[in-house]
Design a protein around this nucleic acid. Structure first.
Lengths: 230, 230
DNA sequence: ATAAATAAACCGACTGTAGGTTTATTATAG
DNA sequence: CTATAATAAACCTACAGTCGGTTTATTTAT
């Protein structure tokens, strides 16, 4: 025979290209990123690129896969903890999201404008639907267990995960819009706090949790978001 | 001076271009629609187009304005009805959305694929945020009145409108995804009914309505959606 | 061990198309 | 008449994607 595909190398190279694309998407957004940007960054030819990806969209799918895989890994770490009750895991899930964003604050805030720009609409849209599709099962399991534990109460544990995600994304959108507005932070942050409180309330009602039980984002965190340098 | 701008004519021509763009967006999606498509459809030159719009994005904004204005008009008709209580208006609001979609069923289903395609992500995204921004006040007012009427119960009437919209959009996304899937309709529709029930429940809980009071979409309607020709 | 064979990996000029600009011309209100 | 709105058409630039071709690694037959 002849030269055979080295799956290892192939995947590695593909990963490198995706990584470069990711940096570019983070810095200038998907639409603004040209294939040439990637070629320049990696010093490879067009032929090389199109050997690994059939189109720019194909590259995007790969990027989304990578992002989702990372999230799933983090989620799994929470799920696997035997010391936590299902309800605690659920809360830990929310906390982890918030903590990640805070930890990578500089990166995160730099990302915001790009991620929520018009030039990134497809990426966000696709990421949103994929997040719901892939992560809902995790949430569903936690919710079902919590219902069994008696800490949650819903007649639709199978659907509640998706609805919870919808709420989470709604909250994110609302907060991001405020963060990206021109209004001064100190005027914004009490309003942000109220938005969070409202979504918290909504989430508790939907899942049938006792008031104050579930906290999507703690007040500390949003305060920090809205008082740091933008 | 010289030839003065005829505001009337100017707006009219702009409207014509937007209308043509709208037909094209409906038939092939925003990204797939080129400026040339519009020029060909109206038999005008590029110069003419760029006299009325500064860019393709500018055109999009105009299109969104048009769409939103139509929705607002419909909403206002409901609000203005003195015979209805606030809660009845709220229900009427949901009904109207569903009835519109059913009435224009053929158009509506044809639209679905295009509207939810990747090539239309920016349009949908922008329309979503603008819908929330512009229509939330209407919902808020209805919710506040309903709370006063004692038919709803929420500590966050000011935020509940936005959250309600989030839920509506979440439900829409879920249903559309099912409608666009390859699975056969008869297998799909009981699941769709359950999704609707879950969102109904969520909405009632969030707004603090009595169970069964609020109906986002009635079962008749979705049944019709999922049994007609696709 | 070596050379022929073969397919993967890579290269970069080229193309078609699209959004947008510039420059020139026509029509019309004052 | 003339200034300007309105239109036309040639032009520019950037970009995704293609394609014929070259290099490089691996296998197989001698």
């Amino acid at each position: 025979m002849a030269r055979t595909v080295n799956e290892q190398d192939y995947a590695e190279k593909r990963g490198e290209i995706i990584a470069a694309a990711r940096r570019l998407v983070y810095s200038k957004g998907y639409e603004q990123m040209s294939i040439k940007d990637i070629l320049d960054a990696l010093q490879i030819s067009k032929g090389a690129f199109y050997h690994y990806f059939s189109s720019k969209q194909d590259l995007l799918e790969g990027l989304l896969d990578q992002l989702l895989a990372e999230i799933e890994q983090i989620l799994n770490q929470i799920i696997d903890r035997p010391d936590l009750s299902a309800t605690a895991k659920l809360q830990s899930f929310f906390d982890t999201i918030g903590r990640w964003k805070t930890a990578q604050k500089d990166l995160f805030f730099g990302l915001l404008r790009v991620w929520y720009s018009d030039d990134n609409a497809i990426v966000r849209q696709k990421m949103e639907t994929r997040t719901i599709q892939h992560l809902t099962p995790f949430l569903e399991a936690l919710i079902e267990s919590s219902v069994a534990e008696g800490r949650l109460n819903t007649a639709f544990p199978d659907q509640a995960g998706a609805i919870a995600f919808t709420l989470l994304q709604g909250l994110s959108s609302a907060l991001v819009e405020m963060l990206l507005s021109d209004e001064p932070n100190d005027a914004l942050w009490p309003r942000a706090a109220r938005v969070v409180a409202a979504y918290n309330d909504a989430m508790e009602r939907v899942l049938g949790a006792e008031p104050g039980r579930l906290q999507l984002i703690d007040v500390e965190t949003i305060h920090e978001w809205f008082t740091g340098t933008r």
